[in-house]
Design a protein around this nucleic acid. Structure first.
Lengths: 240, 240
DNA sequence: CGCACAATTGAAGCAGCTCAAAATAAGTGG
DNA sequence: CCACTTATTTTGAGCTGCTTCAATTGTGCG
């Protein structure tokens, strides 16, 4: 099934009719090569996107080549759904791996939402989940020392990639260079390298050859003070 | 005028009827003392809030007392409007100064939005502005060195407080302790103190006695590499 | 094979941290 | 309004986590 639709179902009860309507609003998949921008910083797209396969990331660039990676987007995630209400993007989105994305024109969203208001709430929830991840990233960068910080991010990625096509048994396809990882962690590439070595030496995780291999999930979680509750899907009418 | 309504008007064209309806959905103001929580981390509020006066901040706590301040909320800002779609808050909100806030029950939002769908988009836009600020905060923490980082945040606060009741001529009421500021900047209180001294010595800004005084806005902006474009209100149908 | 790029390691420096004490400011009760 | 207490700010000193620079090794690929 379309992983984006699957995700929306996870986020809230949506009828088959709504699913079909959402699916119809998604344009045929576009392939984007690794390293390409899905949308440019500062552009004014008339569409949002859903990631069908692959990993992308959002980033904000500074002068002199430095940049901060804001968050990763995995299959099923929407990308800049809230660009729907933004005139001008304040960040870029780039493909980490080759990606398949579906464009969703904002005009289609207008129609969709006017017919199925509940869908709007579900889409909104997807963006909210996104902000939860951003907050966690902020805590990571602002408060956690390098080792814990790195372990924590790897835990998050493993968690989010679980169940996607990118899971390969105990390992995950996560072809990120150390320089790129460094700009997600807010630390230097050299230090990132050393921390990865420490994680390897501690038999917690290995990141190499396009792959993230978790050797000791429990240990990695402890090292990263990782608590996945912020990633659990948020159902409006569940629980209480 | 109610600063929240004023802000919504800034964010998009909303009719007087819509304004009135929104106003009606806001419950009578509640006063919260400085240092008190507006909402607790982990709680499940059935309402969102608007800040009528004062400054609040959102934060995520770690073990051992460390915490990261996610963002500040100034008069007119909504607080956790998207808690509307969240079951359980993943962060807390605390009053920096004494605050007046208006609760907006989610049930009222339901009704409001079903009658005035355009209001939903405007509220959404308010939350989007919020995420822009969060992204900037992430860049600040992840990429900027202490001096630039601090200057940048002070620029943002000055910008956002301009035009509110908290503006006092060249200065702003911003009664933040250095320890609190430190947890917003992701640095130690001692170092925060030294950076503030540097800013003072450079005749850029003074933060003391409850007040933020900007001595040299141009210089402060340059020092902080501050570009306010992410704060400009985002109008859907404007421009182009 | 050989080129280009990514990962690894070493070494030196510094930005920012912790610890700890002194100086100011802010409350509080008499 | 003063004396006292308590919190906040400021400063010093020493340390370390992380950075930068630079060289080496490894890896993927035409």
């Amino acid at each position: 099934m379309n992983p984006f639709i699957k995700r929306l179902i996870d986020l809230g009860e949506i009828s088959e009719e709504e699913q079909a309507a959402m699916l119809a609003a998604c344009q045929p998949p576009v392939r984007v090569a690794a390293g390409e921008d899905l949308v440019q910083d500062g552009s004014q797209p008339g569409f949002s996107m859903a990631i069908l396969s692959g990993i992308a990331f959002r980033y904000k660039g500074l002068d002199q080549g430095r940049r901060q990676i804001i968050s990763f987007q995995v299959p099923g995630n929407g990308v800049d759904l809230y660009a729907y209400a933004l005139r001008r993007l304040d960040h870029g989105v780039q493909a980490l791996t080759a990606c398949e994305v579906s464009h969703i024109p904002h005009s289609s969203l207008d129609q969709l939402i006017s017919i199925y208001p509940r869908l709007a709430l579900t889409l909104w929830r997807e963006t909210i989940q996104d902000t939860s991840i951003m907050r966690e990233q902020m805590v990571r960068i602002g408060q956690r020392p390098a080792f814990e910080r790195t372990a924590n991010l790897l835990c998050e990625m493993a968690h989010r990639l679980t169940g996607t096509e990118l899971q390969l048994g105990e390992a995950f396809l996560f072809p990120i260079g150390q320089a790129t990882l460094a700009s997600a962690l807010g630390m230097s590439p050299v230090h990132t390298n050393r921390i990865l070595k420490q994680l390897r030496d501690a038999n917690l995780a290995i990141l190499s050859r396009q792959r993230l291999t978790i050797l000791d999930l429990g240990g990695l979680r402890k090292a990263g003070h990782f608590d996945p509750s912020y990633l659990e899907p948020v159902r409006l009418n569940a629980g209480i």
